[in-house]
Design a binder for these strands. Sequence first.
DNA 1: TATCTCCTAGAACGATCATTCTAGGCGAAT
DNA 2: ATTCGCCTAGAATGATCGTTCTAGGAGATA
Lengths: 189, 189
Amino acid sequence: MSETRKRIVTATGELFRSQGFNGTSLKQVTEHADAPTGSIYHFFPGGKEELGAAVLRESGAAYQQLFELIADEAGDIVDAMPAFFNGAADALEETDFIDICPIGNIAREVASTHEPLREASVSVFAGWTEAIQTRLAAAGLDAAEAEALANTIIAAIEGGFMLARARRSTTDLRATGTHMQQLVAAALA
Amino acid sequence: MSETRKRIVTATGELFRSQGFNGTSLKQVTEHADAPTGSIYHFFPGGKEELGAAVLRESGAAYQQLFELIADEAGDIVDAMPAFFNGAADALEETDFIDICPIGNIAREVASTHEPLREASVSVFAGWTEAIQTRLAAAGLDAAEAEALANTIIAAIEGGFMLARARRSTTDLRATGTHMQQLVAAALA
DNA sequence: TATCTCCTAGAACGATCATTCTAGGCGAAT
DNA sequence: ATTCGCCTAGAATGATCGTTCTAGGAGATA
């Protein structure tokens, strides 16, 4: 796959993290990615909306891999909870609270106005839910309960990102990780 | 307080819910509020940013009153959890998933780019945290634990809004309410 | 009636937006 | 050597953005 295309997607993802969809201009993308306008429309004929959907899908898949890596390293889904939340908290601190999940940003911002972006975010969330659900089910939860709990975990981390960025503090996010650990442990008991 | 000012704030809040901060133009505000541009700058000399901060503060206070009303009606902070999440879920369904919390929207969107809006969202969240914390402490939790749990509840509902709007379904949001109920019950036990 | 303050009213401004368009560079295939 | 397809390059375009500005209406006070 083209290097230029990669640079465009990466740069757009970074800009989305701190500025959102409507707050990011294609001029900023061209500068940040060091690529001309023509290249954006060559790779994404649908313009900004198509580019945005690609960013959601590709960075959503990357976050899923990251979660799976952390979960496998932790070994146990119960212990994976604080590992995951603390990892996210560390990343936030290291980037001065910029490195928030872009999918959650865009999902809230444009789900009611840009249908293709809403659909892209739904498919990303579906992958996340399944990744967590699978591990919860493997630990003994029935499918329905595992799915519901997986969604609560996703909601908690995304809402936790919101509070952390606003407050410029990861204290709450880490505590929420502990709460999720308790919830998972109780469900499995 | 001026009727026109109220109309401007209300209209802006409604537009922020579905389109976010950057996605809402002042022209839309003038049309939706039936007020001229001059009135916006008369009441909010700081322009869009000052208007946005006012919207956050005023609708944040309204949400807090709503929570306190629901919590008082439920009587018990444990039972208040599903009441609160289900109430939010009902509102979402009735408005075709438009009526999401505008504070969470704006907080994620512009916390890194518009410092006055970030500060406004922080003070709103502080009020919410305190409202929940007070009730948890009254039920027997020590202050630190009550604060941490209050923040997790806020994170869960805001993240739940995100999932619900994206998926156009309130199933997960209601289930998360049950999970928060379990978490509160376990903490109090 | 005259004056003052508060607010309405919307045209005008320069900047910036997403998008379109024309032109050309470059490597592979013929 | 020539052609062809992929991609780069950025100027041009029309729309829209937030903001500023001038002008005047409405009601209270004198």
